[in-house]
Computed example of a mutant assay.
Amino acid sequence: MRKIILVAMLPLLSGGCVRTVASVVTAPVRVVGKGVDWATTSQSEADRNYGKKMRKAEEREGKERREWEKKCRKNPDGCGPYDGFRASDERL
């Protein structure tokens, strides 16, 4: 009779143990997965980084063009076509 009661209560008593064992078994997989996630760049991160580089390049081009236009207003005879930095020509 005691064996039957013990067998009937076994799932209740081992519930926490099974969950703990499952956590311990899956922990290395989760750690490796997190490491791979840190080591690789997702497409959204790559897009965000590219957009940031392009905005900086366009900002640089705008600044250089404004300086060029300012010089051209001061000395229109010595002003040729703009040959400075172009954001679209830079390889990022």
Rank of each mutant, 00 (worst) to 15 (best):
I4P: 01
V24A: 09
K34A: 14
A57E: 01
K53E: 12
P76S: 02
P81L: 05
R19C: 06
I5C: 10
M1R: 09
R55V: 05
A8G: 12
P11D: 06
K53G: 02
K63E: 14
S88T: 07
V25T: 05
A39C: 09
C17I: 14
V36Q: 06
E45R: 01
M9F: 09
E45M: 02
G33D: 06
R86E: 02
E69S: 08
M1L: 13
R86W: 07
K56L: 12
G84D: 02
T40P: 01
T20D: 05
S42V: 02
A57P: 01
V31E: 10
L12I: 08
A22N: 10
D37E: 14
G35C: 11
E90A: 09
V32T: 10
S23P: 03
G78I: 03
T41C: 07
R66F: 15
G33K: 03
R66L: 15
M9P: 01
V31R: 14
L92P: 00
R91F: 09
S44K: 06
G33L: 09
R66A: 15
G15P: 00
G16P: 02
I4W: 13
F85V: 03
V29T: 12
G78M: 05
I4N: 12
V29S: 03
G84F: 05
A27V: 03
R86T: 01
G15S: 11
V7F: 04
